[in-house]
């Protein structure tokens, strides 16, 4: 990695902002909408996704010289599925209460096209160091989107923040819950229709902010699966 430092930070920050998987590329929306009911759920999925994205992409980058063109998708899916299973097992062993709530969505990280997309377009062509930064940037971008949406939805539907933190951080975190309003202002935000409405408004906001600050033509959307 003999490249100037700015280029490295660029690889990272592009993943967070310019190529934010959720806001800009609109990838991985299924887990994003399904699990963002509270901050703690969102944080759990964000951690699991980060583990899978970084682990599998670094692995694929290490193996990239040996992967045959024809068999590459099989290899990618195999590696991603292994990391997803490991993440599920770890969650089941060390955060069981959270596992009972979000396990099904952790298992479908494997079908998250954000991860396969990064493996195909970046990890299979670039060095390990660069891939690590790129994967970390993508993961942080996805986590920010997930936790942001989770926060807004939790405030609207329950009037709290960090409710149930003990599921993830142990019983010491029981007092972390911040109560803002008594009960939810808009209970619908806790359900699927509310997720679509809040996420749609958030995407629009991010898009208009992005356009105002960079004055670039809008990024082309990649297809969602």
């Amino acid at each position: 990695m003999g490249e100037p430092k700015t280029k490295q930070t660029r690889t990272f920050s592009d993943g967070v902002l310019k190529r934010n998987p959720a806001w800009i590329q609109l990838l991985g929306l299924c887990p994003l909408l399904a699990v963002s009911t509270t901050v703690v759920n969102a944080l759990g999925l964000a951690l699991a996704s980060t583990f899978v994205v970084v682990g599998s992409n670094v692995c694929i980058s290490l193996l990239r010289k040996f992967i045959l063109q024809n068999a590459r998708l099989a290899v990618f899916v195999l590696v991603i599925a292994s990391f997803t299973t490991i993440a599920t097992l770890l969650l089941e062993a060390y955060a069981f209460a959270l596992y009972m709530k979000i396990a099904l969505f952790v298992q479908i990280i494997v079908t998250n096209c954000m991860i396969l997309g990064r493996a195909e377009s970046f990890a299979s062509r670039q060095s390990v160091g660069k891939t690590f930064l790129d994967a970390l940037g993508t993961a942080v971008g996805f986590s920010i989107a997930l936790i942001g949406l989770g926060g807004i939805r939790e405030i609207l539907s329950q009037g709290t923040l960090l409710a149930g933190a003990e599921l993830l951080f142990g019983s010491a975190a029981k007092g972390w819950t911040i109560t803002l309003t008594d009960g939810g202002l808009w209970p619908l935000a806790g359900f699927a229709p509310g997720a679509f409405i809040v996420a749609g408004l958030l995407f629009a906001l991010v898009k208009s902010l992005g356009r105002a600050s960079t004055e670039q033509p809008p990024m082309q959307l990649k297809g969602e699966s």
């Binding site: 193996l63 195999l78 590696v79 292994s82």
Partner: peptide
């Protein structure tokens, strides 16, 4: 090749 990756993952 695929079998080596499969073995590693396994």
């Amino acid at each position: 090749m695929l079998s080596i990756v499969a073995a590693l993952c396994g």
